Computed example of a mutant assay.
Amino acid sequence: MTGDLESAQRFYGAVLGWTFRRTRLGERFSFAFRDGAPVAGFGALAENFSLPAAWTPYFAVEDADVTAARIRERGATVAVGPLSFGMGRAVLAADPAGAVFGLWQGQILEDWRVGRGTAPAWLELRTRDAFAAAIFYGEVLDWAGEPPKSCVVAYEQDHVVLRHGNDTVARISGGAVGEDPDPHVRPRWHVHFRVPDLEAAIESATAAGGSIVSPVETSDTGRWVTVRDPEGALFTVLAPRG
């Protein structure tokens, strides 16, 4: 969600090489594409909404009403919906720690999911208590349901990791299970997007009015850095290790 749809499209087009198409939902919404395949959705915030620009993950569910009820039962907040939206129904919610996320009941692309192709590389929940968050999302989203839709949840190196098949879908970080929750963490979901060249993405982001807000981090398979777009929305760009 952005306060200036055209400016956001220019920025992400320059940094990530995305192109954009308007949707049947009107001029305030568009889809982002990379190499002709969908990546993400963009929506313009209503002028009377004093909300910050931000990336929000939407999780596919079979029944938005049932899932919204699960959210409320566990002390979390359903802020919007379920409401009809295009080819389905949507919900905007916040977990018990305050991290915002969405639900989607309706048409989805059969082969499109996090960790594959043009979809985001993975999602990360940065929160105060990773163990409590894993229990909440596991119960609300039925992560341990029946195959093939179920996921495997594991605790690895102080992180809760969610996998679907061989794909890492999400990671929840918030300190070791035996430690007290960190009161300085502002809980939020964070999206990681793939780029072919990290240095080129960094240069494009700063030239287009964004800023780099973390050092470059490296693993055995990739390199990544966190970026703040001109409106303040945070995201991470991830490139293969050369």
Rank of each mutant, 00 (worst) to 15 (best):
R10N: 08
G13H: 09
V15S: 02
L16D: 00
L16P: 00
R21K: 14
D35S: 06
D35G: 01
G43M: 02
A44M: 13
A44W: 05
E47P: 07
Y58C: 03
A60Y: 07
A64S: 15
D65I: 06
R70A: 12
R72C: 03
R72Y: 08
R74Y: 09
T77M: 10
A79M: 07
P82E: 15
L83G: 09
F85N: 06
M87R: 13
V91S: 06
L92N: 00
G98H: 13
Q107D: 11
I108M: 05
E110T: 07
D111T: 13
R113I: 02
V114H: 04
A119L: 03
A119D: 02
P120C: 02
L123F: 06
R128D: 05
F131H: 14
I135R: 15
I135P: 03
F136A: 11
F136R: 03
K149R: 12
V152F: 10
H164V: 02
T168E: 15
A170E: 03
V177P: 09
E179R: 05
E179W: 02
P181V: 08
H184G: 04
V185E: 07
W189E: 01
V195L: 04
D197T: 07
A201F: 11
T206P: 02
V213C: 06
S214C: 09
P215R: 14
S219I: 01
S219K: 05
V227G: 02
D229P: 03
P230L: 06
G232W: 12
G232R: 14
A233N: 03
A239H: 01
P240R: 13
